[in-house]
Design a protein around this nucleic acid. Structure first.
Length: 460
RNA sequence: GGCCCGGUGGGAGAGAGGCUAUCCAGCGGAUUGCAAAUCCGUGUACAGCGGUUCGAAUCCGCUCCGGGCCUCCA
């Protein structure tokens, strides 16, 4: 099946054809680890996790790298404030990031390169760029000379005049051109630094990705992803660095960018105080519901995060798991594959909302099917399809036992005991007692569903 | 100012010239000891105004409104 992807470079959907079908390469900009991951950090992680799953489904070998930025002025500031080494900050928040993403069903990448492990590569690339006349040293800095690369601006569709007109930052005196950007900057003794031909310093932001891509994936990769806010300047600068360091070779063939997450129609920001952290949201809803809420809109559209939307995502999963529960002990078709409609939706530029619609279609079929073979087939299609989106990763019983994440008190054993008591009451036609037990459980957020196979329960 | 996105029923959200999107919520019915779940049915949706067309939510133009990026940002 043909995969089409919207390429920011062409501003159009293109058929995805890897350079080497036996080695598909993809890189996504990962987090700067200086604090807890918020829901905006989670969107690209989840979205590109779905893309990797889809690529793996259709190509034999996919190499996926997502970096960890572990040297950055925000990290330095946090370390200074807490009086600790930056390594303490980055180790702590990298671990938290990985745990939070795992809660959302995001699989770890094949490679997770760290910026501080690639200082020699960065120095080497800067030396190459200086030799080729694309970069220069000045006052302990190394700067990329933007006018030296005539195609600069191709990704963000900006010309260099426009850049100058829009420049809102005071131009440093050591810059040859106002649009030049920093590859390396000097560190004072109180800041982390590494020895270099230009003195003790630390890397600028953009260079690490170019170096880590070159080292781990190659000079030309198939897909590079990240949030739309990275189009300029980060990705534009990556293109400039890598292309110039590689004699003009194509750097990335398909550029993919996910839309922003807003909260109640406002941009998340510390000053507004509406930054939603993943580890806080996990107290409100299961990780899979958060994941579904992120996949309920097309990845390129802006996503407005609301409590209502998250609650809806939870209910949507209730419906899908409800269908699984109806299927009960039916064996999954061992030859199961994702449904054609589902694959077609995902292959159309990762149309996850449409893919979800096909999942609900399967759920309805599951709820109405009577033939065992048919049920087995539907169950297989539902599970394998959902798996490509990282959904339905639990058993139905576990899902309904879990409720909205954190819950108190009553355990499954006691619930089962009360259900047994109610069953006996019903057998004695003592409906008053049966209803009393139902109400008692309901008051503790446990809801019963009588069915032909006995009584099931769910926590809300 | 430059560049780029959007405005779809009560809510979320696909679709992109003619064909039920789907989900959440609501309402009616079936089913149920009562419920829940489920099934069936139901909702005068495409910001406005023009234009193209046999036919426009979809194409074109204009207007209004909202949002993003423009060297910290996912």
């Amino acid at each position: 099946m043909t995969l089409t992807l919207y390429n920011t470079l062409s501003r159009d959907k293109e058929e995805f054809v890897p350079i080497d079908p036996d080695r598909v390469t993809m890189y996504v900009c990962g987090p700067t680890v200086y604090s807890y991951a918020h829901i905006g950090n989670a969107r690209p992680a989840v979205v590109f996790d779905v893309l990797v799953r889809l690529l793996r489904h259709q190509w034999p070998r996919v190499i996926f790298a997502r970096n960890i930025t572990d040297i950055d002025d925000k990290i330095n500031a946090a370390a200074a404030e807490q009086g600790v080494d930056i390594g303490e900050i980055t180790a702590k928040f990298e671990k938290i990031y990985l745990e939070d993403m795992a809660s959302l069903g995001v699989a770890p990448p094949d490679i997770d390169p760290h910026a501080t492990d690639h200082i020699p590569e960065m120095i080497a690339m800067m030396e190459r760029l200086i030799e080729e006349g694309h970069a220069y040293a000045a006052e302990g800095h190394v700067l990329f000379n933007v006018p030296s690369y005539s195609d600069y601006g191709q990704l963000s569709k900006r010309d260099q005049e426009g850049l100058l007109a829009g420049a809102r930052v005071e131009v440093a005196p050591y810059k040859k051109d106002a649009s030049d950007f920093v590859l390396w900057k000097p560190s004072t003794s109180d800041l982390p630094g590494w020895d270099s031909p230009w003195g003790r310093g630390r890397p600028g932001w953009h260079l690490e990705c170019s170096c880590m891509i070159e080292k781990h994936l190659g000079r030309t990769i198939d897909i590079h992803g990240g949030g739309v806010d990275l189009v300029f300047p980060h990705h534009e600068n990556e293109i400039a660095q890598s292309t110039c360091a590689h004699g003009g070779e194509t750097f990335v063939r398909y550029w993919l960018h996910n839309g922003f997450v807003n909260v109640d129609n406002e941009k998340m920001s510390k000053s507004i105080g509406n930054v939603l952290l993943v580890h806080e949201l996990l107290k409100q809803a299961p990780g899979e519901a958060i994941r579904l809420a992120l996949l309920n809109a097309h990845y390129r559209q802006p996503l407005d995060w609301t409590d209502r939307g998250l609650a809806q995502a939870k209910r949507m999963l209730d419906r899908l798991y409800g269908a699984l529960r109806t299927l009960g002990d039916i064996d999954t078709d061992p030859d199961a594959v994702p449904s054609a409609e589902f694959l077609a939706a995902l292959n159309d530029d990762l149309n996850t909302p449409k893919a979800l619609a096909t999942l609900f279609d399967l759920a309805r079929q599951a709820n109405t099917a009577s033939d065992v073979g048919e049920k087995s087939h539907i169950k297989g299609a539902l599970l394998t399809s959902a798996d490509l989106m990282g959904l339905l990763q639990h058993s139905a019983d576990d899902w309904f036992a879990g409720g909205n994440g954190e819950h108190d008190g009553i355990d499954a054993e006691e619930i089962e005991r009360l259900i047994e008591a109610r069953h006996n009451a019903k057998a004695d036609k003592d409906y008053a007692e049966a209803d009393r037990i139902r109400d008692e459980l309901a008051s503790r957020d446990i809801f019963l569903e009588d069915g032909p196979d006995g009584t099931k329960w769910r926590r809300t």
